[in-house]
Nucleic acid binder design. Structure first.
Lengths: 125, 125
DNA sequence: TTAGGTGCAAAACCTTTGCCATCCC
DNA sequence: GGGATGGCAAAGGTTTTGCACCTAA
């Protein structure tokens, strides 16, 4: 991967914040230094930096909205090969919300837990 | 919220699966019963059903991709008012992956944990 | 009767891609 | 020099919306 000022600037912006920004936010920040950078370049470099492992994409749900008729709080498993989502019937840990509240000082009302790995079907193939 | 055959059909499809389908998948299923239903109607009803609490949207990350220069495994907090994402420095629980693997029979390599609630800034306002 | 829902199509939105010029190695 | 990258704009895919017609209550 070649070093370019665009890539450096994007990485710098991302390292200078803990706000987990969107591509568009990064774009607007970087434009302060490189006014004519294009949004396409930002997307391309974010993708490249993800692939090289220099940054992470926060993408727990995949690109598309998904819906569930089951309304009780429960955990999920996402297969990294086929992208299917399964229910995981482990007991929901209420205690951890309290610990997070204590740590952050925020009101914590619930949490979302999604396991990652390979489902049985994809293990076989 | 008015009861219509379109809404009923969508709900029935959703209740008949545990696959956490996308809007488009629901659309194609419902078309088997109501061939001329429109995709817009599916989206509208999914939205309505979410609002009324009859279904849930699996949307842990919000609609947009977000990026993070921090690469170690850590937990997040999402404010339900301002939609900002913060880091939560609780120790990552490796044991729970093993329990999920036992429960499901899947290979579990990691998990994503996101707390929900109201951040300090939004509590004040 | 009428407020709310439907179908259709267009628009909006985010993200990716093709093309050619440019730049890094 | 030559392949990787950038800028620009167009295309792609998902979701929302405007509008005229319909329908459940």
């Amino acid at each position: 991967m070649r070093r370019t000022k665009q890539k450096e600037a994007i990485l710098e912006v991302l390292r200078g914040t803990t706000s987990h920004p969107t591509a568009d936010w990064v774009y607007n920040e970087v434009r302060k230094d490189i006014p004519n950078i294009s949004l396409g370049t930002v997307y391309r470099n974010l993708r490249l930096l993800c692939q090289s492992g220099e940054i992470l994409e926060l993408d727990p749900c995949g690109a598309l909205s998904r819906f569930d008729a089951r309304r009780d709080n429960h955990y999920h498993f996402r297969c990294e090969k086929c992208d299917r989502v399964f229910d995981v019937d482990l007991p929901v840990d209420g205690e951890i919300d309290r610990r997070a509240a204590q740590k952050t000082g925020f009101e914590v009302s619930s949490h979302w837990l999604e396991f990652r790995g390979v489902c049985r079907n994809c293990q076989e193939s």
